[in-house]
């Protein structure tokens, strides 16, 4: 077949296309088609038992003007996302500690990293028990220190539920962020710190003027991962609180599940997914602008 294509350039392009076809087909089948299918579904009234009926913008009207839970879930998603900088700051502190010349630093690194490979469901179960109002370790410590007389039901309280889930999420991801930041720290040439020290820069100035600017790509990567995590933290919420109490920890992603599989509103869940997609797209655009507008670009050297 290749003999039929005359020029070398065309033959090369055909070969590239041939290699791309399987992955493009899979991508189209599992990404693009569901995306458009979902978009179509969001404009219909549909159940697994009936043919779809065109519903126009009904679900979007419902979502934007009548559904308080949607706005709560959107707000909670933003709050959850805002926890990423806290996780990064903590991870940076740990990374700097274990980057120093301390004995057994590899052991500390391993211990901090251990939380990351754990299954999120297991993390959720562990933290659910830690936060338990009666037998939880946290309440045991608080009572022991005389900070409270009666156990606090963290996960059942409007004041504490979201914060508790955020703590668990940070705990799980901190090890991973630490590794990324540690790699970044180790790639900073030592002589830059030495030169700054000779010029009279103190520890804080060296951190602000040398470490932080050179860590920017690693921090940006952590931020992107943190934002993605906040959109996909279904399992942690599902296990720890189920989105409760009274939607206090409901995220958009858990709400999509509940709309579809608890309330049997697949059409409405499709509309929620579109909203989630648009929100995520907006964030990606902001992140791209913040990184100079060419995040993900490949340098070809041409």
């Amino acid at each position: 077949m290749f003999q039929l294509i005359r020029t070398k350039r065309h033959r090369e392009l055909a070969l590239v296309a041939l290699f791309l076809v399987p992955s493009l087909a899979i991508f189209t089948l599992y990404r693009i088609v569901p995306l458009f299918w979902n978009l179509g579904l969001s404009f219909t009234e549909w159940s697994p038992f009936k043919p779809a009926k065109f519903a126009g913008l009904y679900h979007y009207e419902e979502m934007l003007f009548y559904d308080d839970v949607f706005w709560t879930a959107l707000w909670n998603t933003v709050v959850f996302m805002a926890s990423a900088p806290i996780a990064i700051a903590l991870a940076l502190a740990v990374a700097m500690l274990v980057n120093g010349d301390i004995r057994g630093r590899n052991v500390y690194r391993a211990i901090v990293f251990l939380s990351y490979p754990l299954m999120t469901v297991a993390v959720g179960i562990i933290w659910r028990w830690l936060f338990d109002g009666k037998v939880g370790l946290i309440n045991y410590v608080l009572r022991g220190l005389g900070l409270t007389e009666k156990g606090i039901s963290f996960l059942d309280s409007f004041e504490w539920a979201m914060a508790s889930v955020v703590v668990a999420a940070i705990w799980q991801v901190i090890g991973f962020f630490m590794i990324i930041l540690l790699t970044g720290l180790q790639s900073i040439p030592r002589n830059l710190h030495e030169a700054a020290a000779i010029d009279g820069a103190g520890a804080w100035q060296r951190f602000r003027r040398v470490t932080l600017p050179l860590l920017r790509p690693s921090i940006f990567l952590c931020l992107v991962i943190g934002i993605i995590n906040s959109f996909t933290s279904f399992d942690l919420i599902y296990v720890m609180t189920g989105g409760g109490p009274a939607n206090a920890t409901e995220l958009l992603i858990t709400y999509v599940y509940r709309a579809g599989f608890v309330k049997n509103q697949f059409d409405y869940a499709a509309a929620l997914t579109v909203a989630l997609f648009v929100f995520f797209l907006g964030l990606t655009w902001i992140a791209n602008r913040a990184s100079g507008g060419d995040a993900g670009a490949v340098e070809t050297g041409e």
């Binding site: 109002g133 059942d156 409760g244």
Partner: peptide
């Protein structure tokens, strides 16, 4: 008990 309203 609050579990009445939050527990399963």
């Amino acid at each position: 008990n609050k579990i009445a309203w939050t527990g399963r």
